[in-house]
């Protein structure tokens, strides 16, 4: 069993989705605890993160790892899946594309990467009005609000959302991060704390804010 578990970690690390799927199914058939399987997959994800940090992997590799993780969650029996989600989804991050904008590639990748790292995320989707973001932050006690947009018209909506947080006395409790077609000028205009133009950087910022450092693990021996 230990060998199979190690193989699963390695299969995730080497981004072999088919092998991961096969090993997960074998594990389940042999009676392995689904939560252990998820833990192994997560270990593999951590190795992927480490390789990214070492600049041996790129964002596409992170996306592929995230897709594998999502795939595994569809295979694991739903009761355990739910248990896993509940245990990790403390909803530290609320994220969405602001009202009037439907671009979601970067946002979706970021959500996938965060979830794969065990960070609880409330994905609000696209075309999200400011009041919906505020409500989600309040309901979840989120520490981070991620506002995404690829249109210049999104700057105004990002700013309105940030100002609403301030007016409601919530601003000091939440770190606001913007992503998409943004830069430091936009960050200042919006009144956000951070801006990220690539998903991996955004995820790294979230981890730093949440004091999570999963990228510091060493690689598995013999894999590199």
């Amino acid at each position: 069993m230990a060998k199979t578990r190690m193989m699963l970690v390695t299969a995730v690390e080497t981004l072999d989705e088919e092998k991961v799927e096969r090993l997960v199914k074998i594990g389940l058939e042999r009676g392995a605890d689904p939560l252990d399987i998820i833990e192994d997959v997560r270990q593999g994800m951590e190795r992927v993160g480490y390789l990214y940090k070492q600049e041996k992997y790129y964002i596409a590799d992170l996306i592929m790892a995230s897709l594998i993780f999502q795939r595994v969650l569809t295979i694991i029996p739903s009761t355990h899946n739910k248990q896993n989600k509940d245990s990790c989804l403390k909803s530290q991050v609320v994220i969405g594309t602001v009202e009037g904008d439907i671009h979601d590639i970067g946002k979706n990748i970021t959500v996938g990467l965060l979830r794969a790292r065990g960070v609880g995320v409330v994905d609000m989707g696209v075309d999200v009005p400011p009041e919906s973001f505020i409500k989600a932050v309040q309901e979840n006690g989120a520490k981070i609000l991620g506002l995404s947009g690829l249109l210049t018209s999104s700057y105004e909506l990002m700013r309105t959302t940030t100002q609403s947080l301030k007016e409601l006395g919530l601003r000091s409790d939440v770190q606001v991060m913007i992503g998409g077609l943004v830069n430091n000028d936009v960050r200042e205009y919006v009144g956000a704390d951070y801006c990220a133009t690539d998903c991996a950087f955004g995820v790294k910022l979230c981890q730093r804010i949440l004091n999570i450092d999963v990228d510091s693990l060493p690689p598995l021996a013999g894999v590199l």
Binding site: L15, I63, M64, I109
Partner: peptide, 11 residues
């Protein structure tokens, strides 16, 4: 879609 294209490059 970006995600499926990435899958294709690997698989």
């Amino acid at each position: 879609s970006l995600e499926q294209f990435i899958r294709d490059m690997y698989q």
